[in-house]
Design a protein around this nucleic acid. Sequence first.
DNA 1: CTGGCTGCAAATCTTTTGCATCCTG
DNA 2: CAGGATGCAAAAGATTTGCAGCCAG
Lengths: 137, 137
Amino acid sequence: MDRLKKTGMKLTPQRMAIVKHLDGNKSHPSAEDIHKAISPKFPSMSFATVYNTLESLKDNGLIKELTIESGKKRFDPDISDHHHLICTKCRKIVDLPEDISMPQPALASAGMIKGFRILSAQINLYGICPGCSRTDS
Amino acid sequence: MDRLKKTGMKLTPQRMAIVKHLDGNKSHPSAEDIHKAISPKFPSMSFATVYNTLESLKDNGLIKELTIESGKKRFDPDISDHHHLICTKCRKIVDLPEDISMPQPALASAGMIKGFRILSAQINLYGICPGCSRTDS
DNA sequence: CTGGCTGCAAATCTTTTGCATCCTG
DNA sequence: CAGGATGCAAAAGATTTGCAGCCAG
């Protein structure tokens, strides 16, 4: 919340609600998830506001946008250098434990490849989660 | 094309046109790109056919679906274990040279993490391409 | 007060679906 | 000839946009 103030963004009630909802949230919510979650408190809040706010938060480095699911954006308040496991069956998204984290993102975030100045890396591992494995086989 | 036949999929003219268009294609086209490219030859071809065909090709392991851009699916006929560099400015997508490829995908494709049975890995490196760098700074 | 933010509604873009018809195997 | 594939059109889902009015700083 302090970090929000530091960005110079205006502290509107809607924004604060969104930030509060995201804080510590490990569910990697989509814009719709967020809108739905906050609707009870701000029934009039529009999608435009949600998208605008998420865009601003992203620009200010307070959240990350994940490109994990083809159809929709997801957002992650955890801006640390981590990656994700996605269950292709139930679509659950889980943070990848740091100790399995990769040396390459380091390489990537520092370096140049093919003349590209690399700014960030996103690693998605797709598989079947324990729950779905059980149902499966 | 032989590989297409082996899948048992029916060899309709539309499908063959799509497969031919994708063969060796390094542009990571979206469904719309593909539809547009083939329209001149099959003006009547519908999006449903494009999507159905891409889905079938994917199910049969002839192409990969990339989740690189939030709003849309992209497809890659190169099914080898490789990854991508994306210019955040001009949205260009480039294959990551194999020699920079990561040891982890190997780990991932073999292993189990957090109880997940890992099936595939996708690594996206985001940055600024040489062309945009020049314009930039 | 003023510029940034909000709400609303319409528009856009991508993908999916239902169904009648067609055509490959 | 049967079942899968196609074309069409409508629907669904996600995101964007324009604009008038509002409110935090």
